[in-house]
Amino acid sequence: MKEIIKGRGAIKGIAEGEALVCPDSIQGWAGIDEVTGVIIEKGHVAEGTSIAGRILVIPSSKGSNCWSGHFNSAMINGVKPAGWVVSQIDSRVGVAAVVVGSPMVVDFSDVDPCQVIKTGDWVKVNGDSGEVEISRQG
């Protein structure tokens, strides 16, 4: 079963991978382990899961002014999401987008990707066309 949702391409390129959906985003400070990429935010829906190689699906950023810096550190340590799907971009996400450089689609007007996409779905992010293709079993 395939579904395509359309947003705006923020970082060009095409990436695909298994979705990791974080409807409450990930906090900057003490959000991810910058060496392993594992989410360490206490009580987070995906606590203990690594962002490495995943398609990270978030509504926007959360907390820390230097949100991008935590993803920057993780990337320098060789850990980064393969692509991003962001409901509505904000300035912190915009910087993280450039710093990490993975394909990103943002600003969905008629659907909320955090609702449509489920963790474990196979997602193809097209930062050139703004299309996000979701494949799931059944």
Partner: peptide, 21 residues
């Protein structure tokens, strides 16, 4: 805007930021 350490450095160096937010 709240845009973090990297973008603050870019702006301090080139004197520009996106007109946004």
């Amino acid at each position: 805007n709240p845009d973090g350490v990297e973008a603050a450095a870019w702006s301090a160096i080139c004197g520009r930021t996106p007109k946004w937010g």
